[in-house]
Structure formats: structure tokens, C-alpha cells
Amino acid sequence: MSDFIGDWNALLVLLLAGFLPNEVWRMIGLWLGAGVDEGSDALVWVRAVATAILAGVIAQILVQPPGALASIPDWLRYAAVVAGFAAFVASGRSTLAGVVSGELLMLAGKWWLG
């Protein structure tokens, strides 16, 4: 078992640096969100902010690609997302069709570039 768990100190670090600083925002959301009415204007705003933050996460991965994604040229990353979105619209809003098309375009482009 000691190999599986490794160092107990590392688990304490996980608790202090990973679990608590992450979970605190969920619990604050639960605490404050309990008083918000479904369909209220405040909720439209909160949802818009959450959606825009997610859009920022998406943009960040594309503009400042992490790890192996940086090996794909800029234009090919953007083309893959545009192709994915086009397939999504053309297929009557199928997420699967969009994701598969975008991925295939990227793989085909990378293969073609060699």
C-alpha cells in the first residue's frame, strides 16, 4: 500500500493547496446561491458571467495552447474550431458531429503538414 499512497505529507499538501482553495468557492456559491430566485435578473447576470468565463477558458486554450497542442500551428487550431462549429450548425446542433469534425480536420492538417 505504501507505494500506492506514497508520502502522507503529499496528501496534506493536496488538502491545503488543492482541495481547500478549490472547494471554498463552491461552498460560498452554495451559501449565497440559496437565496437567489430562479428566473430573477440577478441569475441572468450570474449565468452570463459564468458563460463568459468559460468562453475565456476556451479562448485561452486556443490562443495560448498548453503542452502538446502548441505543436499545432495557430491557423490549424483555429480552422479546426471553425470546422467543428460549422459541422455543429450543419448537423442541427450535434456536439458529437462538431467535435469529431474539428478533431479530424486537425489530424488531417497535421498529417498533411507531415
Binding site: W25, G29, G33, E38, L43, V46, R47, A50, I53, L54
Partner: peptide
């Protein structure tokens, strides 16, 4: 970002 997500989904 988890904060606005939790607030908007809880109701």
C-alpha cells in the same frame, strides 16, 4: 469561476 456556476445552477 466555480462560484458563479454553483450560484446559477442551485436554483
Amino acid at each position: 469561476r466555480l462560484f458563479p456556476m454553483v450560484v446559477s445552477v442551485m436554483p
